[in-house]
Write a protein that binds this DNA or RNA. Structure first.
Length: 156
DNA sequence: GCCAACGTTGGC
DNA sequence: GCCAACGTTGGC
């Protein structure tokens, strides 16, 4: 059974429009162990992804994507010219792993963090709304997925 | 193993 | 641009 996820990206770096353009993108640059563990150990091809725009004027869910392929080591950790280079990581024991993310669709309008917060009672415990949460890859239950997407089709 | 210092995230 | 919250590092 496919799982569901929320993945954050700063649109200035990589937006839903960028994903639509390229089709599939390796989710490079995650340097948080919890987020890595989700990608390396739990994510599987076909899992649904809520593409979230963070650190922007109207933060919120901008589109839908999916996990594709199988997890593999993040190549940027070995690239000395990358800002994600990690000198402590060794090729025979990679520290950072990623998955590829494939575009599904863009939402007609961003589901703003404000309206997500307004639905907190229907969402229950969700990582995105935890105080101080900064986790860039986090699980979403099937029912939370439904509630979140309904926010995009309802007139508020 | 503690914890201060530091760097980063991300809403505002 | 500010800054609270968080994760990591490293001295002890």
């Amino acid at each position: 059974m496919p799982r569901h996820w929320l993945m954050k990206s700063e649109p200035e770096d990589f937006s839903i429009d960028d994903l639509e353009r390229v089709g599939t993108e390796p989710w490079t640059g995650v340097r948080n162990y919890q987020a890595r563990n989700f990608m390396r150990d739990v994510m599987r091809a076909g899992d649904g992804v809520l593409f979230y725009h963070s650190n922007t004027k109207v933060p919120g869910i901008a589109g839908i994507a999916e996990v594709t392929g199988t997890p593999y080591p993040d190549p940027t950790q070995f690239d000395v010219d990358s800002k994600y280079f990690d000198p402590a990581s060794k090729p025979d024991a990679p520290r950072w792993w990623l998955v590829d993310v494939r575009f599904r669709r863009k939402l007609p309008q961003v589901i703003a963090l404000d309206s997500i917060r307004a639905a907190a009672d229907r969402l229950g415990d969700i990582e995105l709304l935890r105080k101080g949460s900064r986790l860039s890859v986090s699980p979403v239950t099937a029912s939370q997925w439904k509630v979140l997407l309904s926010l995009g089709t309802t007139q508020e």
